[in-house]
Design a protein around this nucleic acid. Sequence first.
DNA 1: TGTACATCAGTGAACGCGCGTTCACTGATGTAC
DNA 2: TGTACATCAGTGAACGCGCGTTCACTGATGTAC
Lengths: 244, 244
Amino acid sequence: LAVQSVPLLTLSRGTDRVTTDISTKERLLEAAEKLFSRDGFDGVSIRDLAAAAGVNVAAVNYHFGSKENLHHQVLERLLIPKRERLVAAIERTSAESDGRPSLEDLIRAFVSHHLHDALAHPDGEHLLRLMAALLADPRHGGDVLFRELILPVHRVFHAALLRAEPRLDSRQATWIIGSMVGQLLHFIMRRTHAHAVLRELDDPAEAARYFPAMEMAIEDYIEHIAAHVTRFSTGGALAVASGD
Amino acid sequence: LAVQSVPLLTLSRGTDRVTTDISTKERLLEAAEKLFSRDGFDGVSIRDLAAAAGVNVAAVNYHFGSKENLHHQVLERLLIPKRERLVAAIERTSAESDGRPSLEDLIRAFVSHHLHDALAHPDGEHLLRLMAALLADPRHGGDVLFRELILPVHRVFHAALLRAEPRLDSRQATWIIGSMVGQLLHFIMRRTHAHAVLRELDDPAEAARYFPAMEMAIEDYIEHIAAHVTRFSTGGALAVASGD
DNA sequence: TGTACATCAGTGAACGCGCGTTCACTGATGTAC
DNA sequence: TGTACATCAGTGAACGCGCGTTCACTGATGTAC
């Protein structure tokens, strides 16, 4: 009767073999991740979710209590692993070169991990579109995004930046992170939405000038953009650090 | 009976004085700009719009044919003047110093104009939130944003960049613009949404570390961020231009 | 100038539809004694 | 081991509500002759 919270995977009994049986709850989470990321919170109805998961409409409220709470759980399920991957990547690089990696190495690691995680990780695209929606309109889960991902990652990278370039003060480091994150989000979204937008424009040649490299394979795009953002950001960070 | 397109302002006759009388259509456009920018296309109902404008529900379909078309007209009404302000600002700077402004001056003009226009211009905040929504989900009007604003501004600034720094090739200039626009959008949205997000977090002190300068007056924030983005981007662009 | 008709902006009520949620229920499994 | 009851996942149908749009209509103004 009440809202469940624990069993994400049940073992079906009643047959002579014990087989893994994906529960209604898990099926709903999978379907919700896919649909919410594609169409947004308001763009998905409970009937859409139930149909995609192959379950009854009442199942959403039975297992999650509300559509809002299902969305919240979808976010947490993606955000927490992503945070842990990111923090681990930053700390791994911070520990290199006897705990004093160069500014460029640190920036390269952050940029490269971010791009790979967003564009090549299996969960990446879903999470990315959910994050983009939250950054434009934080009303449905913006607090979760900040608490579970943005603030923890900021804290770790901020400390690493100050160690790698001691001339920076705290606020400068914060703005540099903002400059890097802004670039990364822009280039990631650009890739994700390029085709959707280009399709609607009258003049494909003009649009292709704004979106060069869209015909590249995703791995090539990642390498290309990682190289650009690393070079640009290292130059930018050094300019800030050496400024008056 | 049919969808109207021309008269945005009518002069009321029938009184002995001729007074300006804001028409139902204009009232709807004003209300729609405010509500769509605050709550998004799906977050606003025709009844909300009619109530805010003080007109009948049927007026939206009478004057605009559909909710979608009203949204479209709201976008065009904001995007076209913004494009013209931006293009004029870039061309003004390009013409300085005998048509050869320094890379830093060009970048400063672009950054500074963008920040002022987004954060201090009367239409700025509405347009900004509409643009953020379109960049996250271009389904309702993304084509208008690209055609009327992004592509024309890109073309003009791209040409100006190549003139100011001839070592850049076309693709490098495009990526540099992407790096700049990404930073600008990030810092603009950060200011806009800071308070909404911070209110929901448990630990205000931690959040304030991520959002320093939020207590600044808006003019100080603009100057502060313009100085950072200009320095960072000039350093970044020179690093790209001088790279192998 | 007067009259007949057309065109206009705007209205109030209703249309059918999809929405999130709730309710009473089923049938399988777990637990107590 | 058997029986009675509790707990569970899941269901089908219905709830009331707000949605975008449409319809028949009003009354003021413009136009033709």
